[in-house]
Simulated scan of single mutants.
Amino acid sequence: MTEVNENSEVKAIDPDQITEATNIEIQPVLKSETTDLDELEAQKRENEEEDEKDIRIKNLSEGNKKMSSELLRARADYENLKRRSTRERFEEIKRAKKNLFLNFLEILDNFERALDAVENHDDSFVQGIEMIHKQFLDVLSQGSVYEIKAEGTEFNPHMHEAMVQFPTNDYPENTVVQVFQKGYSFNGELLRPSQVSVATPAPSSSNDEKNPSVSEKDSSSQEDQA
């Protein structure tokens, strides 16, 4: 190839110079394209990493929710178990106390029968026994054991055990007339019912006068025949 200058002189152009110039112009373009590809790949990797991070965060969040739910259930189960164990232990202690106090009541019954059989309550020995009896009752009251007042009150099937029906007009119907064995409560609950007799209406004498018995009628008829 030749080149024409201002003096119209033709000079030969070196092909290597053309190749070198071309490479100089192409290299920035290739470098720019390579840079864009690298940036795209870097952005793609960054997006993938962000997606993976979001997935991990989501999985961790779901795992935390599940773990929190399981922890709450486990805690609720533990609290229920603790309350149930406490209640069962309390009931066992309560049953043991009731059985112990029931045994004490049998001793107290014999104690009071012996005191009722004593005629001279002015004797110093008897007075000492009565003091022991009072101490016995104080110990029971400290354990929340109290006598159930029954005589003269209305019969209560939840507190009293009817042993005898007593026909009388001196007391209202269903009134406790006599106590055979004292009843006691423990912590406001029935420990032992009172064994009592209960008043029932007595037969009216006026009915007998208005309605003579069959035997009386027969005797009067026999007298008439005679």
Rank of each mutant, 00 (worst) to 15 (best):
M1I: 15
M1C: 14
N5I: 12
N5R: 14
E6G: 13
S8C: 14
S8F: 15
A12P: 06
I13H: 08
D14F: 04
P15I: 09
D16P: 01
D16E: 11
Q17S: 11
I18P: 02
I18E: 07
T19A: 10
A21G: 05
T22S: 08
T22F: 14
I26Q: 09
I26C: 03
I26N: 09
L30R: 14
L30T: 04
K31F: 02
K31Q: 11
T34R: 12
T35Q: 12
L37D: 05
L37Q: 06
D38A: 11
E39G: 03
A42P: 00
R45H: 10
E49C: 05
D51G: 05
K53L: 07
D54E: 15
I57D: 11
N59W: 07
L60T: 08
E62L: 11
N64W: 11
S68H: 14
S69F: 12
E70A: 13
E70M: 10
L72S: 13
A74Y: 06
R75W: 07
Y78I: 05
Y78K: 14
Y78E: 06
E79N: 13
L81D: 08
K82E: 05
E88W: 02
R89L: 08
E91T: 05
E92N: 03
A96W: 02
K97L: 08
K97R: 06
K98L: 00
F104P: 00
I107S: 06
L108F: 00
L108N: 01
D109V: 01
N110E: 09
F111R: 00
E112K: 03
E112D: 07
D116Y: 04
D116C: 00
N120V: 01
D122S: 09
S124E: 06
V126R: 00
V126C: 03
Q127P: 02
E130H: 08
M131S: 10
M131F: 04
I132F: 05
I132C: 07
H133E: 11
F136I: 11
L137M: 10
L137I: 10
L137E: 12
Q142H: 10
Q142C: 06
G143C: 13
V145N: 03
Y146C: 04
Y146Q: 11
E147R: 15
E147G: 04
I148K: 03
K149T: 08
G152Q: 08
F155M: 08
N156P: 01
P157M: 06
H158A: 13
E161T: 11
V164M: 09
V164W: 03
F166I: 04
N169L: 02
D170T: 05
P172S: 06
N174G: 00
N174V: 02
V177S: 05
V179Q: 00
F180L: 08
Q181D: 07
Y184L: 02
N187C: 01
G188S: 04
E189M: 04
L191S: 04
P193N: 01
S194M: 02
Q195M: 10
Q195R: 15
V198A: 03
A199K: 01
S205F: 14
S205W: 12
N207L: 15
N207F: 12
K210V: 09
K210T: 10
K210D: 12
K210S: 13
N211I: 05
V214R: 15
K217V: 14
K217E: 12
D218L: 15
S220T: 12
S220F: 11
E223L: 09
D224V: 12
D224S: 13
Q225P: 01
